[in-house]
Amino acid sequence: MIKYILKRLVMLIPVILVTSFLIFWAMSLTGGDPALQIAGDKATPEQVEQIREELGLNDPFLVRYAKYMAGMVTGDMGQSYVTKRDVFKTFMERLPNTLMLGGAAVLIAVLVSLPLGIYTAIHQNTWKDTAGMIFALFGTSMPNFWLGLMLIIIFSLTLGWLPSGGKTGFASLILPAVTVGFGLAALITRTTRSSMLDVLRQDYMTTARAKGCSEKRVIYTHGLKNALIPIITAIGLQMSLVITGSVLAETVFSWPGIGRLVYDSISKRDTPMVTGSIILCSVLMCIINLVVDLIYAFFDPRIKAQYSKKG
């Protein structure tokens, strides 16, 4: 198993190289001339040229990329044009906030959607099922940043229960986490329901009943364990949705995470910050995907067997 993890980590390297190359290339074509931005409007052409030289902007593209990647290994991804702060450091400072928000959102989503998905599957084609599915349908149809705005209107401005933005302790986490978690909950509810319905029809469920298992035991011991496999896959696939959702929720709630960082950097045309953040985000996604795969293996002995054979 450890061998497998190592192998997967090694396999990440080309992925990161390709992704970062594409992003670096695309971003180097945009954002205008950073030297002009730094020097300001009043600078003379000589000053600008000097800044270009200092930043290494006159080097050929591949050299710049190689330098950038070499820097990345040591945690040096350049400086922000705007704040003059270290990109890697800034990202790492913001990362825990986004992970906290994303984690809370996934937690809320799982806590809501697993019971709801199972419940609707067991009561298939009754009004309970319909009600649950209507909830899920609304959840997937709603832009989550809009949900965030609605939550602010209701819970902050009208009721005054929760803060409308910033990071000021646990209470300030609730609304952003619900915002990100709601759409996710809707999606996982649908997956859980269909996965559970699929499992409920399986022969081994009849075997379990014929053994004398109580209905509860049939569903939770035999059913859920099998249904979880596609559910975990679905959650894994939605991780990019969590990041996307976080970017928007952080904007709506002024939550000091990566999303807010990217948004601010884009609006200020802070190219090194944007490039660095997006590259680090894709690395983060790769690691999350790896973790999801490992969780998957934990629940499915067939996959686990495959891994131990390979590794």
């Binding site: 081994y204 379990a208 002995p301």
Partner: peptide, 13 residues
């Protein structure tokens, strides 16, 4: 049961 392939729970020993 008729089909032993599907009658056993795949995630339990």
């Amino acid at each position: 049961f008729q089909d032993p392939m599907t009658a056993l729970n795949p995630v339990m020993t």
